[in-house]
Amino acid sequence: MMDKTLIKAILFDSGRTLNVPRTGQWHITPNFYEIIDKDKITSNPMVLRNAMGKASDYINKILKVSTQEEEFLMFKEFYRIALNEIQYPVIDDNVLTALAKDNVYNDEKFLFFDDVEPSLKVLVKKYKVGVVSDTWPSLERVFVNKGLRKYFSTFIMSSIYGSSKAEKILLKIAIDELNVKANETLFIDDSESNLKAVEEFGMIPILIDRYDRKELQSKYPIIRSLEELSKLKNLEVPKGIYMGD
């Protein structure tokens, strides 16, 4: 009889797994076009996109961001770079402060998928549940204020540790905090590249497709909603993995 590995924990990525940006773009904040005069921005969306890309290059080099205050200062510089790139006519402290505040301190910057809380309520009855995300400190506050943080026994944000999922340090911290083994843990992520690191670490990778892309193929099991996890019967896991009764 084959030994079965009992799954004891489920770890989730956050962005495009549990939540998405309300505007559809991470750094176009809910009040972006109230703070910025849209008439003074080029009508070519690629120009703004490229400017955001250059500003992202700057923040992606900052590995350690320990507090929301540090995150706020980082995003002030982010928007200074972006607005300078599009040659916005008024780049002063008032504008930069308003944009950074809307990015960091606005709890409405994210939309959570409808299945998140109902599924978590079911999953926490059987599994230890956590978040491991390449992100900044304000994410946890949003989860707290939305009433979702209570479901997670660990909540790992990359910038707190100056690392990323790809380096696997965060994965080790998560399983240590949950007191489980890697092979007893599912990891749900929307990125195959992240799941490659998860697989190498010894966890069970599951790809989530929130956009129902029928043509999507993957070496990893694919789910389209968290309900497939909470119901379990629709989830195909590798041979020898036991999800419990």
Rank of each mutant, 00 (worst) to 15 (best):
S14N: 15
K54V: 14
T5S: 13
F12P: 11
K64G: 07
S163C: 04
V142S: 04
E70S: 12
R49S: 11
N103M: 12
F72V: 01
A98M: 03
A182H: 09
M52V: 13
M157Y: 11
D134K: 01
Y161Q: 10
L6G: 07
I62H: 03
V116E: 02
E177D: 13
D114W: 08
L171G: 08
L111W: 12
D209H: 04
Y211Q: 08
R149W: 02
E70R: 05
A197W: 03
D176H: 12
E200V: 05
E227D: 13
I223R: 04
E236L: 05
L170R: 10
V20Q: 14
L207W: 02
E71T: 00
D115F: 00
M46P: 02
K150F: 02
T154I: 05
K165F: 02
R80D: 09
L170Q: 14
K146H: 15
S138R: 11
I223T: 05
L148D: 03
S164A: 13
E167H: 14
K61E: 15
D57S: 09
M243Q: 14
Y127K: 08
K231W: 11
Y105R: 05
V198I: 12
L171Q: 12
I62E: 04
K231C: 10
K40W: 07
T17I: 09
V95S: 00
M1E: 15
Y220N: 10
I28F: 11
R16H: 07
V144W: 07
E34I: 13
V65P: 02
N145K: 15
T154P: 04
